[in-house]
Design a protein around this nucleic acid. Structure first.
Lengths: 194, 194
DNA sequence: GAAATAATTTTATGTTTATAGAAATAATTT
DNA sequence: AAATTATTTCTATAAACATAAAATTATTTC
């Protein structure tokens, strides 16, 4: 298991996650349903749901963490009730596309390219092979094209030299760079266009 | 990609549960966040999230079951994109108090009383004991009071007789019935008032 | 102060679920 | 047809979680 060492500082998606996790159990949904009709004590809920008091208490703690219910001491009963405002606010605030889009950590859109290139690069800096086609070839081409300056004019001989640093089959790669619109050519002169 | 086989007895809370379970995992939230920015293939997502393709596929299946994403075949890529409408519809439709209140199965509000009475009743129909106080005593009293007709006048001797069928300590119970306003008394005559 | 009652926390256990490797399926290119 | 690539399904495993009994805490009644 690799990834995200999840930052210790609570980010907005922690809040989302707590909210959804609270709602992702059938007995907790039943509890909310009951509390939407009338406030109740832990013991009453336990009887109504045929669960132990400790289990209900555990569920209520999760719902409470998510801000969905709140308790009011009454005698030695703890009367829980639905926190309706939180429910509606949450659903409106959290479930919009704009907000969701921000939930994603800054996605490294380059990472796919980087992985492909890493996989294909030998330790001498040359490519072990050329991907036959598709997305991986494009990733490699995006990598190679960076060896050229945008706008600068290169004679074909120089283009070949630069490409050869990556792979011996400079002819194929040069053609790909043209085909996929990374370069343009006129009278044996090449220039990078993106 | 399979899609929601939605159970034969599918009730509204199944739908809610599927929806929330789909959203209750941090990697699935990250996927949604990314797809809110741009559609992507399984492999691209796997690379961006540093997860295996099979894991991402598994997550996408859950999101798809919940109607949150949909896929479009493109070459041999499956390009997934956010199903924005579903997200907003769900949040508005599902998270209202009226709807939540219906999510709860018809709650048997009597069940607490019934359980208490069952626990305290011996096989001969008599009470094994009298709860000292609190909710359980009230449940027992609500049970006993049903032996009386509302409005009908009972002399004390008859009240004692009826109560004795439940418990020998008729004096305490008679007093409780008055104290807790199940009966009223005047000149040695009793009547049930609720 | 002692007994009774309600709720929470702790601890243990069985179930569910996320994960990834391997195998199977599907589509594409050569 | 054979090789390549992407995705899904199958299988196994480890982590997360629901559950309840027991212990603990807190409150009330007597």
């Amino acid at each position: 298991m690799t990834n995200n060492a999840q930052t210790s500082t609570s980010n907005p998606s922690d809040e989302l996650l707590t909210f959804f996790k609270a709602l992702s159990d059938s007995n907790r949904l039943r509890i909310l349903g009951i509390l939407a009709n009338q406030p109740m004590s832990v013991e009453q809920l336990a009887t109504a749901l045929n669960l132990s008091a400790s289990t209900v208490s555990h569920h209520l703690a999760k719902l409470s963490d998510a801000g969905l219910v709140s308790a009011k001491a009454e005698g030695y009963y703890n009367i829980y009730s639905l926190n309706q405002t939180a429910l509606e606010e949450m659903s409106q605030r959290l479930l919009k596309k704009e907000n969701l889009a921000q939930v994603a950590e800054p996605v490294d859109l380059e990472s796919f390219d980087q992985k492909v290139v890493r996989d294909y690069l030998a330790s001498n800096g040359k490519l072990k092979a050329l991907p036959a086609q598709g997305k991986k070839l494009l990733a490699i081409l995006r990598y190679i094209i960076q060896a050229f300056e945008i706008g600068k004019k290169y004679p074909e001989r120089e283009v070949n030299e630069i490409i050869k640093k990556f792979h011996d089959d400079f002819a194929s790669i040069r053609r790909y760079l043209i085909d996929y619109q990374f370069m343009q050519r006129e009278n044996g002169i090449y220039w990078r266009i993106k």
